[in-house]
Computed example of a mutant assay.
Amino acid sequence: MPPPPLSTPGRRPTTLRDVAEAAGVSIKTVSNVVNDHPHVRPEMRAKVKAFIAELDYRPNGIGRQLRQGRTGLVALALPDLTSPYYGELAAVLVDAARERGLTVLVEQTDGDPDREREVATGFPVRLVDGLVFAPQSLPVEELQQRRDSTPAVLIGEYGEGSGFDRVTIDSVDLGDTAVQHLLGLGRSVVAFLGDKAEASTRPPVVAQRVEGYRRALRRAKVRFDPTLLRPLPEWTRAHGFDGTMALVAARPDVDAIFAANDLVAFGALHALRRLGLRVPQDVAVLGVDDVDEARFAAPTLTSVALDRARMADLALGLLADRLAGHHGPPRLLTVSGDLVVRESTAG
């Protein structure tokens, strides 16, 4: 996987926050000095510049753009801020942007195509320098025809062929990793909880996880059983609960559940308790995202962790390149998942 744009090998690059803390001033003051703001006292400018030199701080692409009259605002458009995954992603991206001297404006789209269309066409984020966008339902054809000139980076599995820089998740590998782990425990009836009712309507994230699920089965020479692909209307706790109740009623021999995300897995854990089934002795459960709640579930939840901080850093790096004048073809950076084993599969 290629390294993040504008990153420095070795130690973590010095940030505006590092300089501000060392100099005992605000991040805004350091930003004003870096960007040659006229209303900074000479002695303060000299003090901050001394710490900049001492700490070897190097302004990134976005910071340099502020000297050219940019607003220092970046928009972040996500489907659902009440989702732990997207809430945590927003938090780390806001922190990463703050270290670059940027302010983030957050827009919730609810995955609605009309609201995603508004974001893609520049409303309500017209005054920003750049956009980080996680579309869910807007057709790729519309993204290709986007006329707004604001640099944008897509984050997530959606948007292949859109012509935008993207930070994506290798959900095929993620599904393979999850099911390989469950099969390695000796489980033989592994369900995927979170499919769509019709294979033709699977969005990319679902299609990729199903592909990874099937790849792991093939490698282990386990017969694929389509009845173990269980559809859910949405990836929520409630639907995870209802889906698990229906799954066990239809397939009482199921001994492992690969849940599409951690919320679905939490619902599955509750349903299995309600049914008197033990986790993991009777049914092992594995989720995706490794949200903070996974460490406090009962039992604690095994999950495929996604490095949200790295995703945020990669997205802002791509955006910084565009704002610094990069006009090359769209780039794709991929983040893989790491298995975090806890009680729901380990006992």
Results as ranks from 00 to 15, higher is better:
D36S: 06
L319I: 11
T177Y: 04
V248Q: 01
K196C: 13
V106Q: 06
L182N: 06
T14P: 09
K196P: 00
L154P: 04
G347E: 10
A305W: 01
L269N: 04
G175I: 09
V119E: 01
L332C: 11
Y158E: 11
R98A: 15
P124N: 03
A22I: 09
S7F: 13
H270Y: 08
A309L: 07
E99Q: 15
T29R: 13
L76W: 06
T201C: 11
G72N: 09
D18R: 03
H181R: 02
R17H: 10
L138K: 02
V304Y: 03
F258L: 11
A297K: 03
R342D: 05
E293P: 01
R322C: 02
A178C: 12
A324T: 02
D112H: 14
D292M: 10
F192V: 06
P280W: 03
Q145D: 12
R230D: 00
D307V: 01
G325N: 09
Q144R: 15
A91H: 14
A199C: 01
L286K: 02
S200N: 11
V335M: 05
T227D: 13
S137W: 12
I27T: 08
T71W: 00
G72Y: 02
A256T: 05
Y85V: 03
S31G: 13
E142P: 03
R70D: 06
H37N: 07
D18T: 10
V40I: 14
Q145N: 11
N35Q: 12
A297C: 07
V205C: 11
